Amino acid sequence: MASMNDKDYYAILGVEKDASAEEIRKAFQQKARKLHPDVNKAPDAEERFKEVSEAYAVLSDAEKRKRYDAMRSGSAFGGYGAPSSPAGGGYADPFGGFGGNPFGWGPFGASTARRRRSRAYNPQAGADVVFELTVDAESAAKGVRRGVTYQRYVSCDVCHGSGSVEAEHAETCPTCGGKGHITVDTGLFGVMAMTCPECEGTGKVVADPCSACGGTGRTLSASEIVVEVPAGSHDGDEVRVGGMGNAGTNGSTSGDFVCRVCVPEERLTRRQANGFNLIGFALPFLALGLVTSTLAADAAFVAVLIVFGAYLVIRDRVRWTARWWRNAGVATLNGLTNGLVIALFVTALFSCTMAGPRVRGYYYF
């Protein structure tokens, strides 16, 4: 397998070295659709698909891309074609740094540059992948099917998600003896307790880390899914597909793919939401002025809030759908709640001020 130094991710995706993030994303989508094993039956399609996914995983992340460019130019720590360890660490790992120390030295003085970043056995459930799908109101009302290509962590094919190539179970961490922490004598500052850098506090480590996933049990890849948006859907509704999110580490459960439906015709813009908030905020002061007969004094303040709020709403196009007006009502209610709290506080403060200090049964003003 070619090392990362030998791979030209820009050439793999067919983009220039100064390509923007959007250009890289579009190039990946085009390549992924053509090379996906479910679509392309060529013998090398799967391998090329994984290579494209790997290239996108690096170039789509600003920090990883910076390190990759530096490594390719020979300016990174440990560059100039430095070999990598079997576990995928190496001198300059563009995916994870230098083992926590840019000089490659651990807490015991031993060089960690050739070791992988961590072989901690730490099963954690995978996170959900949230994707926002924009459809028009007509499609949302009738229902629609859409194919989606997205990035996620999948279970490693080599170790089948366990993180270990041969061993069936994790082993006790040899550094901390399974405690999850170690003590270090710093001399001047005395003995200090710290999280074990080998197992990262879990007390267990992967016996023989898989070189494909680095012992985590999962790798980054591109996936495709067909989302069924049911008829009668509205803005903000969610369609959940179980198990199609990120795979968990070391064989733990996967998250879900969550598709959030976005219907622009039913959605308030940020300006409109702020406008309805202002209108709602003004309503308690308007009611207070009518009840206490002080509306004339508050008229200017209330008018400014309502007029400016209405301007923000009208500035962006008003939608004439029931869901849009329901969202408008929610935004107005939020503003009304905040305005009511402040109006009551101002009323109580004004009442205390007017009462004045009481001395011998009399009020002095």
Rank of each mutant, 00 (worst) to 15 (best):
A247C: 07
R145K: 14
S53F: 02
V129L: 10
D44L: 05
I314A: 11
P94K: 03
P94N: 07
G214N: 04
S20C: 10
S118H: 13
A140C: 02
S3G: 15
P197S: 10
G329I: 02
F308W: 06
L333I: 11
E224N: 14
P83K: 08
T253D: 15
E132T: 13
R270P: 08
A62K: 13
V130C: 10
L133T: 14
E63L: 15
V158H: 15
G203R: 05
V135I: 13
Q124L: 11
V302N: 06
G147Y: 05
Y68P: 06
G242Y: 10
R152L: 00
S85C: 15
G90M: 09
Y362N: 12
V304P: 09
D316H: 04
G104S: 08
C176W: 00
R65E: 05
A57E: 07
E54D: 10
G79P: 09
Q30D: 05
A21L: 15
I24H: 05
A299S: 11
R33S: 05
A296Q: 12
A296I: 07
C262K: 15
G97H: 03
G203N: 04
P174L: 05
W320M: 12
Y9V: 08
V313E: 04
A127K: 14
L290H: 07
V318I: 14
G251E: 07
G161N: 00
A322V: 12
L290Y: 08
V263N: 06
A296P: 02
A193M: 10
R271H: 14
G100S: 04
A207N: 13
F49K: 00
G201D: 10
A19N: 07
V239A: 01
K17S: 15
L133H: 11
Y150N: 00
N334P: 01
D157P: 14
T249G: 04
A322L: 14
Y91N: 11
A57C: 12
L13Y: 01
T292R: 13
D208T: 08
V130T: 13
N5Q: 13
E168W: 08
L344A: 04
A19M: 04
V359C: 11
T337D: 09
A19F: 06
P264I: 03
M1S: 14
N334G: 15
